[in-house]
Amino acid sequence: MLASGLTAWLALVAGPDAVRPVAGIGAAAVVTLALALVSSRPEPVVAALALLAAAYVAILVIDAPTLDARSAVVAATLLAIGELAHLSLEARLAVTGEGGTLARRVGWIAVLAVIALGLGASIIAVVDVLRTGGLAIEVVGVAAAVGIVALLVLAAREALALAERDRVD
């Protein structure tokens, strides 16, 4: 439902040229997500999230707004969709939990969405401030992107090392 809402909202805010591709890609994302939930498989969830992101990219490419502040909302909604979809899949396999487990998880997802919204808004604000900058800002942007990728690689390596240690133990 959230995915359908995001698709509808993106189609509404898209320019006249972008409406059709956005609606088409969004519909494909909703169908993919529905398939993932029906088949109880997690793999199509990421495809659905990628398609929803692609629908937003279509707006960015076709309408080419200067700096789109809606990206924070898109990011928070995508995260909520991903978390809720995985929660739905896990709930089918999970054992009988204590009362309130599901409500706690849903509440936590709401908190995550709010944090994502705040993070996105902060990034947009920083970008807006620095937008007028020249090459130095470009360098800072690339460094930030590389830094995030490096952080992800480090985190993945840490997790792999931890797993390896456990296997040895």
Binding site: A53, Y56, V57, L60, L67, D68, S71, A72, V74, A75, A76, L78, L79, L112, I115, A116, L119, G120, I123, I124, V127, G141, A144, A145, I148
Partner: peptide, 9 residues
Amino acid sequence: PELVVVAAP
């Protein structure tokens, strides 16, 4: 930069 915002969370 909007896509960085999407990726960040």
